[in-house]
């Protein structure tokens, strides 16, 4: 029962109190129920997907890599998609999972950075803040049962500090000196850990690239949703840079000798 007599017998869409009789905060919500939104389905599965993202800490900052493929199921649908994205000068994000969700996230972060810039006080969001923000957004969306279907690595370098952390569609977060999403967490992560753990402050940029390329090669050999065309990003004191797309030399002659599946007769 509404005990406020001024609410009684009001038209349903009275957008505002024409007579200014009581404060806005106490006015009733007489908007029509949004029957359409109740029938809208939320994402239940990713559609156009990216595969692994890799990242490691090294002497001068963070190195991150992801290939240029966006798959449609098992179809290699888009072969020139960029899955690394710089947010400001000190942060890089790389995503696996649904590419439309990722592009939405890119737009959202770009808008956020512009909003921050308009404060005109010289304070920019660093990698830690951006990671926290992303985590809150992804966690809030999973809580609404309407997830943004991605696994995202956030790498950065600010005020002499390296930053590397993970966040996914559930809002799960963690940080480590080597990270990999998707298939890479099974195949590349052990290689990265072996090469990097305990040597974060020693590894040079050339060495880091070597480690990343080795892992990307193994992933290309083993991950059927990968592509031999990828980009490498570095985030250092010099800023966040993304390389041109590149590919690696691979050898497939050994495949001839493999027996047991495929079209061979013996």
């Amino acid at each position: 029962m509404d005990h406020f007599p001024t609410n009684w017998g009001r038209p349903r869409n009275d957008a505002y109190d024409a007579y200014g009789t009581y404060p806005i905060a106490q006015r009733p919500q007489n908007n029509p129920k949004d029957a359409f939104s109740a029938g809208v389905q939320h994402t239940q599965q990713p559609i156009v997907t990216g595969t692994s993202v890799l990242a490691i800490k090294y002497k001068d900052g963070i190195m991150m890599a992801a290939d240029n493929l966006a798959s449609y199921g098992s179809l290699a649908r888009f072969k020139d998609i960029q899955r690394l994205h710089a947010v400001g000068n000190n942060t890089m994000i790389g995503a696996g999972g649904d590419m439309s969700d990722f592009q939405y996230i890119q737009n959202m972060l770009d808008e956020l950075m512009i909003d921050e810039f308009t404060a005109q006080d010289g304070l920019a969001l660093g990698p830690a803040e951006i990671h926290e923000y992303l985590s809150q957004v992804l966690y809030a969306r999973r809580t609404k049962m309407n997830p943004l279907w991605n696994s995202i690595l956030v790498g950065g370098f600010k005020d002499g500090q390296r930053f590397l952390a993970y966040v996914d569609l559930l809002g799960t977060t963690y940080s480590a000196s080597t990270l990999a999403t998707g298939y890479g967490s099974y195949i590349a992560q052990p290689l990265l850990r072996k090469a990097v753990e305990g040597r974060e402050d020693v590894i040079t940029e050339a060495e880091a690239l070597e480690i990343i390329e080795t892992s990307m090669r193994v992933l290309y050999y083993r991950d059927a949703r990968s592509l031999n065309k990828f980009q490498v990003a570095t985030i250092t004191a010099e800023g966040a840079k993304i390389s041109e797309s590149k590919s690696l030399d691979t050898t497939w002659s050994f495949a001839e000798g493999i027996r047991g599946y495929g079209a061979q007769t013996q």
Binding site: H42, T43, Q44, Q45, R142, T143, M145, P147, L170, T172
Partner: peptide
């Protein structure tokens, strides 16, 4: 197939 909002860590 519905989205599972939980995991176990």
């Amino acid at each position: 197939h519905s989205f599972n909002p939980y995991t176990e860590n």
